[in-house]
């Protein structure tokens, strides 16, 4: 019974150099997005040499970072089979909470922590409605979206306020040239580790891949979903605080559905399946980066915002078609 389990059968179909070169790209879905980012960057650079200046790189990093941070959470949630539409409103609410708590006399770092705890509480409620009261997350978080928007507008009276903070705090929390992207890359590392190398990550994939099967295996699918709702809100709140600190203004209309959709688009272009079960954090970052590069490049070229939306729409559709095609190929064992 000492037979080897590794059979020598190789999938047939295509062979030679083409296979050797293409296979890694198909196997690691992020790599195709990375290639597109590089190609786009190269194109914009040749079209306008202002593209590769440190100022513009900083601009791209500022476009990317907050959305990418939201996208990490949204990716986790999509992988386990749920979605959070309210995360853009947590983005707007969190810095107001930080501001109010700080004005009430709490030191700023502690105010940040309290604002993040409040964000987690929103995720807890989203999870409660979805997991225990069985409202589909699309609807539950849609309700939360309006509720939070109303709360933020009410407590702010609809006006932006100056974000508090001394020089050091402000620099670290987003204003220093690359502070936001450093946060985003740090969290990228942490979340990649969480998704690919912890039980929680594995259980998140299992929950989205086969809910019944996962629970039959004893995975606490409800707890996994709850945790991911809280994680998403936490990241939404954190990104909101970073942005409020960076632009020195806490705006009740910051973030919103635009930030939320941008994060979902980043996740989806990065290869996350809306139906759950698959996706990567690196993909979410690259997907977000791709959209930022497009947005920035078109602005440099003077392409109108209207055209940009059209291109973005096409990009999403192409990404999704490729996603479906590639996963069919992968499933067929051809790659």
């Amino acid at each position: 019974m000492a037979r080897s389990i590794v059979t020598s059968e190789r999938p047939r179909g295509w062979s030679g150099i083409g296979r050797t070169v293409l296979a890694p790209f198909l196997r690691f879905r992020e790599s195709s997005v990375a290639v597109v980012v590089v190609l786009l960057g190269f194109y914009f650079w040749t079209a306008n040499n202002a593209f590769f200046t440190s100022d513009n790189i900083a601009t791209i990093s500022q476009l990317t970072a907050p959305t990418a941070i939201i996208a990490y959470g949204e990716t986790m949630l999509l992988i386990c089979g749920e979605i959070d539409l309210s995360v853009g409103q947590v983005f707007a609410l969190a810095p107001f909470i930080m501001d109010f708590v700080n004005q009430a006399g709490v030191p700023l770092p502690a105010s940040v922590v309290l604002a993040l705890i409040a964000s987690i509480a929103v995720g807890f409620l989203n999870g409660l409605f979805t997991v225990f009261l069985r409202v589909p997350s699309f609807v539950a978080t849609l309700g939360m979206l309006f509720l939070l928007n109303g709360v933020t507008l009410t407590i702010s009276h609809g006006f932006p306020v100056h974000t508090p903070g001394g020089a050091f705090f402000t620099a670290v929390m987003g204003q220093a040239g690359f502070a936001e992207i450093v946060w985003a890359l740090g969290l990228l590392g942490v979340m990649h580790l969480v998704l690919a190398h912890t039980r929680f990550g594995l259980h998140t994939i299992a929950t989205g891949g086969n809910l019944v099967g996962a629970s039959e295996a004893g995975v606490r699918v409800g707890a996994v979903k709850m945790a991911n709702f809280m994680l998403t809100s936490l990241f939404g709140g954190f990104a909101g605080i970073l942005e409020a600190v960076r632009i020195r203004s806490t705006d009740p209309l910051a973030g919103g559905t635009e930030a939320m959709f941008a994060a979902v688009v980043g996740a989806v272009i990065g290869g996350t399946a809306l139906a759950g079960g698959s996706g990567t954090i690196i993909g979410a970052m690259l997907g977000t980066l791709l959209v930022s590069v497009l947005k920035d490049g078109f602005t440099l070229l003077g392409v109108s915002a209207f055209t940009f939306d059209m291109i973005l729409g096409v990009a999403i559709l192409v990404a999704m078609v490729l996603n479906v095609r590639l996963s069919t190929l992968r499933r067929g064992g051809q790659v």
Binding site: A206, G209, N210, G213, E216, G218
Partner: peptide, 26 residues
């Protein structure tokens, strides 16, 4: 009750994964 998206060994160890120390990484 298998998870199609996970690998063979991940399925075999689902919910009784082996983790290391000190960090609880798989």
């Amino acid at each position: 009750a298998l998870i199609p998206e996970l690998t063979v060994y991940q399925n075999m160890f689902l919910n009784r994964e082996l983790t290391g120390r000190p960090l609880p990484l798989l």
